[in-house]
Measured scan of single mutants.
Amino acid sequence: MATGGRRGAAAAPLLVAVAALLLGAAGHLYPGEVCPGMDIRNNLTRLHELENCSVIEGHLQILLMFKTRPEDFRDLSFPKLIMITDYLLLFRVYGLESLKDLFPNLTVIRGSRLFFNYALVIFEMVHLKELGLYNLMNITRGSVRIEKNNELCYLATIDWSRILDSVEDNYIVLNKDDNEECGDICPGTAKGKTNCPATVINGQFVERCWTHSHCQKVCPTICKSHGCTAEGLCCHSECLGNCSQPDDPTKCVACRNFYLDGRCVETCPPPYYHFQDWRCVNFSFCQDLHHKCKNSRRQGCHQYVIHNNKCIPECPSGYTMNSSNLLCTPCLGPCPKVCHLLEGEKTIDSVTSAQELRGCTVINGSLIINIRGGNNLAAELEANLGLIEEISGYLKIRRSYALVSLSFFRKLRLIRGETLEIGNYSFYALDNQNLRQLWDWSKHNLTITQGKLFFHYNPKLCLSEIHKMEEVSGTKGRQERNDIALKTNGDQASCENELLKFSYIRTSFDKI
């Protein structure tokens, strides 16, 4: 039985969820670079991206490699990797027998973001014989899940209580170790020597080791999670996991709180800001991140802002960003909400898709409305799209047979046209069989910064309504002859009103 693990408890099935942008060198404390989270699957090609990484700022997932063999891993080693800020997950990587050479110096898994409450997941690794993470000293947050690894031993010899604050939620089941077939031998045991430290858990006094050649490092209890030197002297209180010299914040392997210019500090002093819960960055760093993602459509890219001495992905609820200094300031009234469309555009074809934009005031991208039916549609669209004030790209209304009016965009005031449909149009209306009105132009103002209007096959939309939009939106004169079809717009509506004058002759039985 794995020490510190839980057996036999019912657990939810383990679901495996399925960018080499360097964020800056980590400095003297770390020998390499800070790398983003990685999802490495199918083959070993991307694994080489770990070569210079000291910190993975995010998670590391290595999974679904069915053609790899043990010899493929023999020359692979990433000794610079010290810390993973989120979680480490391995799933069905064939041929991998140990992690001792792959990650010989991995010391800390912070667990800032977890995989279903777990910071370390080893699942269905069919050839893994031992973990071998002999320098792993601290899992700051989260638990361990090690399950269905039929060859995995050296679990009962690990004292997880020396690595985690609590072992109650560890789930370590259905491994070879369960069948008591392992016969784990710690260093020196074969020669009758006791080389590794022994600890007591559940009444068992057991030597602690990761492999037959690597003991588990056990520091004096007084050192807590700070770690200790090879001689057993406690590291500085700002260290986490390990250090090369005692009581020196510049000799830590990793930091308990924050890293700044080669030393570990309790908090980031001005003019620095907390970033990702582990390091200090200056304003320029946060500003660069903001600008890199301002026009990016890459998933996970955030326009970072500053709030409460932190550089964070977005302002919290009730705050909006001051564009001059990136500071989050309290909103006066309802907060603006910028919604970034991942692929640059979004099609609204149902109430469900409209709900995804609920509360958005600025759309960074283009909207395509293609709704053919739905219950209580006008009210639903207004509830979900009615706060949109600005669209950076274009607005396209296409084959939306259920629409009679666009009044559900009740606050839309600006279409920038930074991206144009077919390279020309910022407003595009095609084949809307029941569209009769755009907006009530006596109450609604709309500016279209650039781009043209396109109207074709809107049989109940009168040309007068379209011409009014040209005047109000500032697009009059931009359109070419064929942009607004004269014969297919309003051709099934009563669009022309003329005053009919009647004269009559009164007659009676005795007068003409």
Rank of each mutant, 00 (worst) to 15 (best):
W278S: 05
I84P: 00
N175D: 02
K148W: 09
D159T: 02
L120C: 04
N117C: 05
S296D: 15
A190Y: 14
I62H: 04
D75P: 06
L90P: 00
G111A: 04
I139M: 08
R297W: 07
T45A: 06
L76F: 07
G58N: 00
C35R: 01
N170L: 08
L133M: 04
C280W: 00
K224D: 15
C293A: 10
V121G: 02
G192K: 12
I139V: 09
C268V: 00
C311Q: 00
H307P: 01
N308R: 10
I56H: 01
L133S: 15
Y94A: 11
L326V: 15
S98R: 06
E49I: 13
C228A: 01
T189P: 07
A190S: 09
P104G: 02
R110F: 05
H290M: 09
E266V: 08
R74T: 08
R263S: 12
K193R: 05
P249H: 04
K292C: 06
R113I: 09
K217C: 06
V200L: 04
L155F: 02
K148C: 00
V200K: 02
V305R: 13
G37H: 07
C228K: 01
I56N: 00
C196M: 05
P104E: 02
V305K: 10
P249S: 09
C215E: 03
K217S: 09
L50G: 02
T250W: 13
C328Y: 01
V34G: 08
E71V: 01
T211M: 14
C186E: 01
P31I: 12
H290I: 09
T211H: 04
I201P: 02
H302S: 08
R162N: 15
D159C: 02
C335T: 04
Y30T: 06
S244H: 13
Y272K: 05
S143V: 12
M83W: 05
V218G: 03
R41T: 08
R69L: 09
T199I: 07
V108T: 12
N295I: 15
T320C: 08
C331L: 03
N117I: 07
Y134T: 15
S284C: 03
P249M: 04
T250F: 11
L136V: 07
P313A: 10
H59Y: 14
A119R: 00
L326Y: 02
C243N: 00
L260H: 15
D75T: 10
